[in-house]
Design a protein around this nucleic acid. Structure first.
Lengths: 224, 224
DNA sequence: GTCTATATAATGATAGAC
DNA sequence: GTCTATCATTATATAGAC
């Protein structure tokens, strides 16, 4: 969908250049001059189209999040570890700018990042509930918190991708290190933990339960 | 150890103010004038003590990371989910600036952040190996990748704390939402997953194993 | 729509008095 | 050690020609 050719309006070309620079350098460090140069236009034209630098970011937010929200809706079936992220990485080097931009959006404080995170949690919660009904996912008392944990774990690849690939030696510096090699290497350990657990017994869980003996309803338990 | 009083050298007071502002606003957005005002000194004095803005950041890096590295060494015993982070949160509202600063350091590209992440992974790997030997942690083929997954999951609370507390409604805006309430709410779901797993059977793990049938050594398996 | 100036403001860093 | 100017640079945003 994104071709590097000139088959885009100038406004769209500026916006895409801004997505790249805002994601890579951050909103504060990225300058209108950089964006204009990358888009092959003058700085004045950037302002002409988007009013202010903040207006340009708003356009980027709307474009990236509208794009991801659309794709997220269609692919809400229960998958393995990274529910949403995996799908994006099926097309390597295609959505790198968007991924980097989303990472920045989640790091910095912004309403767009809040909305994106909430959407991820919401879809994860739907998946968890569906899996619990279908019997493929274990029963959890606090479904929402469980979904938050799963979403947080999944998004950690997005947030820390640069460090993960750096430590594991997998390539892909383009999108902060998040590439097929990295996911391949992390998929099995993550799925083993999600399938058989990480600990051998429940001593740590029991200890935590004892430590948090408040508001506990002793009537309901789920199979060990 | 950190008292808000004036019992610090002026240089240390400037440095602490810089840690707060760099962490909160980011290195680019934070200004020397802001730091100077927060420390109650003139902008010129900041330069006098640290040479340049980058020099000030280096001093912050060294201070925060030296501090965390020291504390990390002493507490390398196998704990529950957030191995290192939990310990920091035993003293609420005490290390909020340092935590925020570390989060920023991990987000932005910096050698200090790289070193910190590597240290976390290294300690996690030690814990995993020790747990595997002691029998409290399951046997994993790829110990390093497993440690990376665990460390990534743990650090996701640090990276996404603001969103987690926002979604779950737990308080604590001071340190990007990471507080005792948040950890209490996430501890049980996380430990349940780490103890009993997330899925009910191994269909997803098996599917992933089949999809990655390369370099597989069919001679070694671990108990299902 | 697009460009070339230019106004205006903010910032990092310097110089020198105290 | 600390301050008050001040410089030089850089950035956003404006104005108006084409």
């Amino acid at each position: 969908m994104r071709s590097d050719a000139e088959d885009l309006t100038t406004r769209a070309r500026i916006r895409d250049a801004a997505i790249r620079h805002f994601g890579r350098d951050g909103f504060a460090r990225a300058t209108i001059r950089d964006v204009a140069a990358a888009a092959g236009v003058s700085p004045g034209l950037v302002i002409h189209h988007f009013g202010t630098k903040a207006g340009l970011r708003d356009a980027c937010d709307q474009h990236v999040l509208a794009q991801t929200a659309t794709q997220g809706r269609e692919k809400a079936d229960p998958r393995s570890t990274g529910h949403l992220i995996q799908d994006y990485l099926n097309h390597p080097d295609q959505y790198t700018d968007e991924i980097t931009y989303i990472r920045r959006t989640l790091s910095d404080e912004s309403e767009a990042g809040d909305a994106f995170f909430d959407a991820v949690v919401r879809q994860t919660e739907d998946i968890v509930r569906a899996g619990m009904d279908a019997g493929t996912i274990r029963k959890f008392d606090d479904v929402r918190s469980t979904a938050v944990v799963i979403a947080s774990n999944s998004l950690s690849i997005l947030m820390l991708g640069r460090h993960l690939s750096r430590t594991l030696g997998t390539a892909g510096p383009e999108t902060h290190g998040i590439g097929p090699d990295l996911l391949r290497q992390l998929a099995l350990p993550a799925l083993e933990i999600y399938t058989h657990g990480f600990y051998t017994d429940s001593q740590f869980l029991d200890a935590a339960r004892d430590a948090l003996q408040q508001n506990t309803n002793p009537g309901r338990e789920h199979a060990p």
